[in-house]
Simulated scan of single mutants.
Amino acid sequence: ASDSVDGLTHDSKDNVQTIIYTPNAEKANVTYIDDTTGKKLSTEDLTGNYGTTDSYQTGNTIKNYENQGYKLVSDSYPATGVVYDQDGVVKSYEVHLTHGTTQTSENQTVNETIHYVYKNGGKAADDYQATPLNFTRTVTTDKVTGDKSYGDWVAANGTSFAAVTSPAIKGYTPDQAEIGSQTVSGDSSDFDFTVVYAKNAPTITTESKTINETIHYVYKDGSKAAADHVAKPVEFTRQVSTDAVTGDKTYGPWSPAQSFAAVTSPELKGYTADKAQIDKQTVNGDSKDLEFTVTYTKTPVAGGTGLNQPGKPGNGTDTGNPSSNQPGNPFQPSNATNNGVINTSTNTGSKVNNGAVNSPELPQTGENNSQSQTMSFIGILLAMFGSLLGFLGIKKRRND
């Protein structure tokens, strides 16, 4: 503005004033915005005279952000700089940036292992190792923050492990009959299982044993004399414990001892048994079958006849015969004269004859039946001959 002048006349000199005009200062700003987060990163305030062009360029700032991992999205600031051509107007510009990223591929392998052990910790069988399952996915890394984001896993060779039956081990039982199927993803940890085997209890069974007693009755030559005696068998039992692993057997005690009763040997007429009876026999589960043989031999025949009988006193009719009381006199009459071979109580020979004539004999193998009959006949003749001599002796004494 010019200065005011007072009191001017026609004699006053010219009043000359110079007015200088200066340009107005104008304003502008540039805002840098993070489009990833939606936040303002920074603002650059600019000033300049009206009508001038600002020398500021956004390139250096953008490059600095790019070095931090940002990526330019848009820049509204004039490439040649802002022109302050609007008095009193603040010009605003925006530079939009986003986070730069990198992409990589990530691999994951998932394993399944099954251990087989005894209860005491020892190894029972080789480990089961499943075929590993492989997965891949894309990993996106934020270049500004370093944060990672992950894509979905993609299976390369399957998404599950099949069920696995626990191996059979003789004498042992596993606590898990099988390991079931397992669903797997790339996020899964390795699968690790342990199957424990416990020894089975021994098998308990009952063992039986039968003991027999047989008695054979035979003649001396070995032929059968009578039917065998077969006793009612006796039975014993005991428990047997069989080890589930080794198969070794442990035996309990046999049931109490038992007895076979005494057996009287049967009587066979004309024969004598070498054992009158088989005594009572006590047996137990460790005993073997009992077998006995009773042998029969022919009862011996007495050898004397009427000729060999001792002399007996006379009947008193003639006592002068010096030989009348002489023992063994074949001509001596006796009171046995009339009963000869029949009186078994006084005549030994008659026992033989009686047995031979009146007692039926059991057949015997190996002996000649005709010989037996001949001997019996000779015995009878001798008895008759003795009786005849006695009779003739009596008659002679009477005649004398």
Score class of each variant (00 low, 15 high):
G328H: 13
A383K: 00
V294G: 05
H229S: 09
D190Q: 10
Y271Q: 04
G328Q: 09
T22C: 05
T173R: 00
R238L: 06
Y128F: 15
A273P: 15
Q182A: 13
S181Y: 02
D11C: 02
T9M: 03
L72N: 01
Y21G: 14
T237P: 07
T299I: 14
A28V: 11
S166F: 15
A155N: 15
T80E: 15
T138S: 15
Y219T: 12
S181W: 05
T141F: 08
D318Y: 15
G122N: 08
G252E: 11
D147G: 14
V263Y: 03
P167Q: 11
G180K: 08
D14S: 10
Y32G: 04
K199L: 03
D35H: 01
I380S: 00
E66F: 03
A273S: 10
T18I: 14
D75A: 05
G386A: 03
P327F: 08
G379W: 01
W153E: 02
T31W: 06
F236H: 07
K298M: 15
Y217A: 13
S188P: 03
N67G: 08
Q176K: 14
P167H: 09
G355L: 03
G38Y: 10
T53H: 07
D14P: 03
V30S: 05
T297L: 02
V110S: 01
F161D: 00
L392F: 11
D175Q: 12
Y217L: 13
G379M: 05
A383S: 02
G314Q: 04
A273K: 04
T299F: 09
P233K: 06
D54F: 05
V30L: 10
G320L: 08
E178T: 08
N329A: 11
Y56G: 01
E26I: 02
E213P: 06
S76C: 00
Q364N: 06
G158H: 06
S287T: 04
T206E: 12
E367K: 13
V357L: 06
V139G: 03
V301W: 05
T348A: 02
Q182N: 12
R238H: 14
D243Y: 12
D45G: 14
T282I: 10
N15G: 15
T131W: 01
G81K: 04
T36E: 09
I62E: 02
T141P: 01
G393F: 12
H10P: 01
Y118W: 11
T145Q: 06
K91F: 13
T140R: 05
T250Q: 13
Y197L: 07
S189D: 09
D6G: 01
D127N: 14
L268M: 10
G311C: 13
D11W: 03
V73F: 00
Q129Y: 04
N369I: 09
H229T: 02
N347V: 02
D45M: 07
A273E: 01
A125W: 09
P266T: 13
T264A: 11
G304Y: 00
K148T: 02
Y70G: 00
Y271L: 04
I278T: 11
D192T: 12
T250H: 15
V16P: 04
Y116V: 06
D228W: 07
S149W: 00
T317V: 15
F236D: 03
A163C: 06
A273I: 07
G186W: 00
G7Y: 10
F385Q: 13
E207Q: 07
T36D: 09
P313I: 05
P202W: 03
G340A: 12
T183N: 15
E106M: 03
S345E: 05
P300G: 08
Q129T: 14
T80Q: 14
H96P: 00
T47A: 12
